[in-house]
């Protein structure tokens, strides 16, 4: 008896009206959607990219993709969920492309060393400062699984790795982070 109304409440998407308008070409509505969601999209891609420059570009790219795909959004899930999927996919797609390119130019170790020397800005949270020090693959798996809440199967799909590898990377990430917490603490 009580379950039904709660479910219905959960199913009401607060973005529904704006999405509907945006899908008909209303750019102001789309801008409002952007205002509502860009902060966490930025945080997500920043953590995956590990750099603010690429995070700026990636966030923009995510919203451009979303605009182009609004017609395909059927409202079966919440808009925020759907946006989440697109953001992850766009960011991972780009980062993996860049990674292949980096492999040709540098070695994986070199980019790792680079990320070690990166000086994080002061207003980052403790966790975000540490995340930057994780090797790329390890960081991706950690962010997607631990922060974004994707299942290992989903992480594996997004990253193009085996489920076992995802688990191993997350485990490795936790180990490294805990170790750094001890050192810094």
């Amino acid at each position: 008896m009580t379950v039904k109304p709660i479910r219905q409440k959960l199913l009401v998407d607060p973005d529904k009206e704006l999405v509907h308008r945006a899908s008909r070409g209303d750019m102001q509505a789309f801008q409002q959607l952007f205002e509502r969601h860009y902060k966490w999209v930025y945080a997500l891609v920043w953590r995956l990219a590990g750099a603010s420059d690429s995070a700026h570009d990636l966030t923009q790219e995510v919203f451009i993709k979303v605009w182009g795909s609004l017609a395909q959004f059927r409202g079966e899930s919440k808009f925020s969920t759907w946006l989440h999927t697109i953001a992850t996919r766009v960011a991972m797609g780009e980062l993996r492309k860049n990674k292949r390119w980096q492999h040709i130019r540098l070695t994986g170790e070199a980019s790792y060393a680079q990320s070690m020397t990166y000086e994080p800005s002061a207003d980052l949270s403790e966790l975000d400062k540490l995340i930057l020090r994780l090797p790329e693959q390890t960081r991706w798996a950690f962010v997607l699984h631990c922060i974004e809440g994707l299942r290992h199967e989903e992480v594996a799909t997004e990253m193009g790795i085996a489920i076992g590898t995802s688990k191993a990377q997350v485990h490795r990430a936790r180990q490294m982070l805990e170790e750094w917490l001890t050192d810094d603490g």
């Binding site: 860009y38 930025y42 945080a43 603010s52 995070a55 949270s125 975000d128």
Partner: peptide
């Protein structure tokens, strides 16, 4: 979403 990294410039 507490203390998340925030963009430094306008994105819109």
């Amino acid at each position: 979403g507490k203390q998340s990294p925030q963009p430094e410039r306008d994105l819109w």
